[in-house]
Design a protein around this nucleic acid. Sequence first.
DNA 1: TTGATTGTTCGCAGTTGTTGCAGATAAGGC
DNA 2: GCCTTATCTGCAACAACTGCGAACAATCAA
Lengths: 150, 150
Amino acid sequence: MRSPAELTETFRSRGLRVTPQRQLLFRLLYDNGTHPSAEALFAAATEQMPGISLRTVYQTLSDLSELGEVHPLDLGTGATRFDPNLVDHHHLVCERCGDVRDVSLESAAKLPPREQLGGFRVATTQVVFRGLCEVCAGGDSRPAEESAHL
Amino acid sequence: MRSPAELTETFRSRGLRVTPQRQLLFRLLYDNGTHPSAEALFAAATEQMPGISLRTVYQTLSDLSELGEVHPLDLGTGATRFDPNLVDHHHLVCERCGDVRDVSLESAAKLPPREQLGGFRVATTQVVFRGLCEVCAGGDSRPAEESAHL
DNA sequence: TTGATTGTTCGCAGTTGTTGCAGATAAGGC
DNA sequence: GCCTTATCTGCAACAACTGCGAACAATCAA
C-alpha cells in the first residue's frame, strides 16, 4: 500500500477523514510483511493507543480494502489476513503456526484452456503453497505456538 | 472420494459405524461436483431424511476429511466447502455468486526457487482463479442470487 | 435372538470472527 | 470558533462452527 502521507491525501480527497486512529493504522500497516489479522493489528495498535476500538480497526481495514490499498486474504487460518503488498505475488502458508509469507513467481500459473473455462472470466489468479515453515518443520513433533501474526 | 459401498467398508474397518445418516451423506457427496458447504449438504440431506441434524453433517464431513475422502476448501466464500474430487485439480471461484468449479492444469504452478522458500517445506500447491462465471458475467450489473451450492 | 458395549446422533450452549446500530465525539470547511 | 457530518466506541446480533452429554442404535459376542 502507499505511504501514510499518500493515504492521508487519498482519504481526504474522497471525503474520508483522517483521524489519529487511522494514521496509527496506516503506520502499522505500511511496509508490514506479516499479513496481520484484524485482531493482531488491534493488539499492535492498542500498545500505542490504548482504548482504540477493535471496531475501528475493522472499519479502517474495510476502507483500505475498498480503496485497494490492502488485499484481504482468506487463507483458512481462521481470521482474514490483510496484505499491504500490492505487487503481484503469492503466498506460503504454514499449516501449523499459520505464518504467511510472500513469494513472487516469475511465471504464475497459466490460465486454464478455454474449453475448461467455458465462459468463466478470470480476474485474478491466486497461488497458495501450504506446508511447514522452517521453524515448525524443524521442531519435529511438538506443535508450535500460534504466532502473533504481527 | 470412493463409492458409498467402499466407504462403508473403510468406516467399518476403522471401527467407525455405518449409520443411515452416514450412508445418505455418502450418496449425496459421491460424484458431487458442486463443492457443497455443510449447510448445503444439510439442506439436501434434510429432503431425504427430515430430522437429520446439522451437527451430524459436520461430524461426518469431519470424519471423511480425516480419512482423506473429501478435501475441505476455504475459498473465502463464507463457509468451508467440501470437495469429493480427489484427483489433482484446481478451482474457479465466482466472486459474485460463490460458485466453485474444477479445472485441471497440466502444468500447475512451479515451486518458488529455493532462496524464496528459505527452509519452508511445501506440501500442497493450490491455485484459485477468481472472477465471474458466465451467468454472473453475462448478467451485467444486476447481482446474481447466491446459488444454493448443491 | 438377545444383550452388552461403545460409537453416533441430536439439540443446545458456547466460541470465534465479523458486522449492525446509535449515541457521543471530533475532523474539516467556513 | 462553529457547524455539518464522518468517525469512534461499545454492545448486541450474526454466521459458521465446535464442545458436551443424554438418549439411541450399530456391531459383536454368546
